[in-house]
Design a protein around this nucleic acid. Structure first.
Lengths: 186, 186
DNA sequence: CAATAAAAGGCGGTATACTGATGATTATTG
DNA sequence: CAATAATCATCAGTATACCGCCTTTTATTG
């Protein structure tokens, strides 16, 4: 890579700045054995961000995040769930569930009550407005999911989803966000 | 699903609580058309979390997050980069780069200086301690990456990585975190 | 060359996501 | 049945990750 100095003007200023120092050769060699784009963790993080961007593009106006819609989805089928059950069903931390529920409750989409049988528990359920929103937003959410894998053929898409599920089942034990039971068998 | 009342004792209390209300049938039907575990965005979010957990398990003691190591990796090969270049190389937001750099600088792993040529730019490079850490941590980071796909056979692993890269290239345009140029061609 | 546009970074705000500690309630056990 | 243990929620703290607005500096243009 030849440096064409600053004769090129603006475009090369950044490149020139980045080349002020020579990289450490030993480090360079080490890093090249496993560059960013060969690290599955890095690729997955990027794809996760892409999904967020697609989700917001499709669901603009609803003001609901992917995690919030996931929680609303679970509440749709499991009214009056406690926070730990929700955490295990959604695969996020229990403290995080409380945060998300607080925001959803502030917007009137979710109602929370103390359980009478076990006063430690706080039970959450959808409000009528919450149910309406889940139904109204579903098509947009679906479109975001579809667009993410749009570029794949039928077989590659199926293989990709199968591998994702396989990896999650194999690693379900990690972190406070482990699912209670495998929901992937159905 | 028959409720076995509270004769079962502790185990069923949570289930009983969750079944206090009957789910809305129409909503139920809608949600079952695309349950959580069939949503690629959801699966990817979960796998992302699994990677974080594996990374922390392998890299315990270093006190470095996946994103921080990604940034250090880029600095290894590109000393004196500005923050926007780093953001585009790593695929994260530029304000986020500044946050991460601040923490790395506080720990003495990174040094920042104002560019002389362009006084708007802040250039970052590894300190000697930073270089040592990148080298020392590399094996642990590699193990985390390997463990994530450990359960896959050779062919499935290659196919999975290829699909990930394909999806990222197809969707690179989304969000403030878009990569400057495709680094996936090498 | 002065007025305007563009670029870089900083700041404030919001939303995940997790750890560790604490307090209230319930369950277990000696 | 009282002491202990387990469970559930909450709080404080840290680290991503992004948006929009602002100031400073550089580039463009009439």
């Amino acid at each position: 890579m030849a440096k064409s100095a600053k004769t090129e003007g603006t475009q090369n200023k950044r490149a020139a700045a980045a080349a002020l120092r020579e990289p450490n050769p030993e480090l360079q060699q080490l890093i090249e054995r496993l560059p960013l784009w060969k690290r599955p963790g890095y690729l997955i993080r990027r794809l996760h961000q892409v999904h967020y961007a697609l989700f917001f593009e499709e669901c603009e106006g609803f003001g609901i995040t992917p995690v919030q819609y996931g929680l609303l989805t679970i509440l749709s089928g499991n009214p009056d769930s406690d926070q730990i059950s929700l955490a295990q069903a959604l695969g996020i931390d229990r403290t995080n569930v409380a945060d998300v529920l607080t925001r959803l409750a502030q917007r009137g989409l979710v109602e929370r009550t103390r359980s009478i049988e076990d006063k430690r528990m706080v039970l959450a359920r959808l409000s009528p407005e919450g149910e309406k929103l889940v139904a109204a937003m579903h098509p947009a959410m679906s479109r975001a999911q579809e667009r993410l894998l749009d570029t794949l053929g039928e077989r590659e898409r199926a293989a990709f989803l199968a591998t994702l599920i396989k990896l999650l089942e194999a690693n379900n034990k990690y972190g406070r966000a482990a699912l209670a039971t495998s929901k992937f068998g159905d």
